[in-house]
């Protein structure tokens, strides 16, 4: 119903969404490590394309492309800085291997963004909260996390309502110089904070009433259980790691320039 709809999570079911978030996280970290291990463009390209089946299986292509587009500015920046440094340090000459090296660095960044975005696009916050609960993280942290996810969109919507209410009383947020503009937000911030405090008191009251803190041995409605898909992903992860380390140690990797 509002501008803040994007902040709200939606439940989607796909083979990738159903995977155990812990295993997915291990996978993402492994990709991260492998990407750091290599500085040649060919293995990085290989890593890049490796993610695409996951994206397609999870049917998050559109959101995935959007996150890549979001990262493209930074990627361009990394490329230019890399090219420029080699250009200036190698006596104002631009050689093909240098450009390729810059491209590889950029690609490494893209691979990192790509794999993390697959993780976050396919892991619902409640799954993530559950993973936190089942890891050795204290329950209070896991609870704080899910509560934050639950209330951030509510607070965002509330902020919009407060802005509307003050605008209706003649407040012009965009008026004046920088200092004046910051001051303009006081009538928005104070109600927002007061209402957040009121809200947290009510929440605390409701939690107390539902036996919060009754026992140290809390149970959980859901249980994260490793299924066949999770074992498969784990095997794939280990495979990638083994192959990557082997290649890194024993196989000379040609650069594109050399191949040409």
């Amino acid at each position: 119903m509002s501008v803040f709809d994007g902040l709200r999570f939606r439940k989607v079911y796909s083979p990738i969404h159903n995977l155990d978030p812990r295993i997915k996280f291990v996978y993402v970290i492994s990709i991260f490590v492998v990407a750091i291990l290599f500085y040649q463009i060919i293995p990085l390209l290989f890593l890049f394309f490796l993610q695409i089946p996951f994206v397609l299986l999870a049917r998050v292509q559109r959101q995935w492309l959007r996150s890549l587009r979001g990262a493209s500015f930074l990627a361009g920046f990394i490329f230019i800085v890399n090219v420029a440094t080699t250009y200036f340090t190698s006596g104002y000459t631009l050689l093909a291997p240098n450009v390729e090296n810059a491209a590889a660095m950029t690609l490494r960044f893209v691979v990192l963004v790509e794999s993390f975005s697959v993780f976050f696009l396919t892991t619902s916050p409640d799954h993530l909260g559950l993973a936190l609960e089942e890891s050795r993280v204290p329950y209070e942290f896991a609870f704080a996390f899910t509560t934050a996810v639950r209330f951030v969109p509510v607070l965002a919507e509330e902020a919009q309502t407060i802005m509307d209410a003050q605008k209706a009383r003649g407040l012009e947020l965009e008026k004046g110089g920088l200092l004046k503009r910051i001051r303009n937000y006081v009538p928005v911030l104070i109600p927002l904070i007061v209402s957040a405090i009121r809200r947290s008191l009510e929440l605390a009251e409701a939690m107390e009433s539902r036996a919060w803190g009754a026992t140290k041995k809390r149970t959980n409605l859901y249980l994260l259980k490793l299924r066949r898909g999770d074992y498969a992903l784990l095997a794939i992860t280990v495979g990638i790691l083994v192959v990557a380390i082997y290649v890194r140690l024993f196989v000379p990797i040609p650069t594109i320039t050399q191949l040409l």
């Binding site: 409640d126 899910t146 509560t147 996810v149 009510e202 409701a206 539902r210 036996a211 959980n220």
Partner: peptide
Amino acid sequence: FQNPENQLFALSIEKDVAFGLENVGVSR
């Protein structure tokens, strides 16, 4: 309580309904 919004804190309805039972440590 009066305000429904501030007594639901989980991300799914059934998880919310289970909240109290989880707190007292009822088996799954």
